[in-house]
């Protein structure tokens, strides 16, 4: 099997299966959550603000007063990582082509050099966050196999993508295949791991905002 064959496999069957498992997994997990339902709240809400859940969905991205100072590494590392990842996934021209082929939607891309920089930033942030996880007593206690797995499968696509672009270690076609395989690993792992927070974060934030909102508190 030559490198191009490997790449064709990575873009073909391997990608198909990864996407299928990913989509099935996400839908299944969403059912799993919503299927448990919740009892209607019979207490009269203080404010009739159906928007409180949606508000918290966005507002929770900003550190509450005093928190940034308590744990700057987590917040700053978290921001840099998530933004870097977001840029890399959604604003690199080749990636947009992927989304276009799957959804028909497309949007303007960023210059490659900027994407490259954001990937580096995201990787550095991931490294910082790992060091923090290993050093901070709370994080270390909370962390288990799942957390380190999530960290690894998130780093790999960034790393392989960076290495492919810069022609590091292996020749481009092989590295590009490895990049795709790492993305496929991520797709398969995501629905069934901590990485599912990519989706569930909106649900949990919504519930949080709703629970507080009914009591008249913007959370």
């Amino acid at each position: 099997m030559t490198h191009l064959d490997l790449l064709t496999f990575a873009r073909g069957s391997a990608l198909n299966w990864a996407l299928i498992i990913f989509v099935i997994g996400i839908v299944l997990r969403l059912f799993e959550i919503f299927g448990l339902s919740r009892k209607a709240d019979l207490a009269t809400p203080r404010t009739h603000s159906p928007g409180s859940g949606w508000r918290t969905m966005l507002a929770r991205s900003i550190p509450p007063p005093g928190m940034l100072k308590r744990d700057p590494v987590t917040y700053i590392g978290g921001y840099v990582f998530h933004l870097g990842l977001l840029f890399a996934i959604f604003f690199f021209a080749p990636h947009i082509e992927f989304f276009r082929s799957m959804t028909g939607l497309h949007w303007p891309n960023l210059p490659t050099a900027l994407v490259d920089a954001s990937v580096v930033a995201a990787m550095v942030a991931l490294g910082m966050l790992l060091a923090h996880r290993l050093n901070n007593p709370v994080k270390r206690m909370l962390s288990g196999f799942g957390d380190y797995l999530a960290w690894t499968v998130t780093l790999l696509p960034l790393l392989t993508g960076y290495m492919a672009y810069h022609h590091l270690l292996f020749e481009y076609t092989l590295m590009l295949s490895l990049h795709l395989f790492s993305v496929e690993l991520l797709l398969v792992v995501l629905p069934f791991s901590k990485l599912f927070h990519t989706f569930s974060v909106f649900i949990s934030r919504w519930y949080n905002g709703d629970i507080f909102g009914r009591k008249g508190v913007a959370s």
């Binding site: 744990d71 709370v138 994080k139 999530a150 927070h197 649900i203 519930y207």
Partner: peptide
């Protein structure tokens, strides 16, 4: 007692440890 909010909370936790700081 486990309901949809609880399932979403456990699904979402990323073990960031920030809740301890609060």
């Amino acid at each position: 007692v486990i309901d949809a909010p609880i399932a979403s909370f456990f699904s979402s936790c990323v073990h960031c440890g920030l809740c301890a700081e609060a």
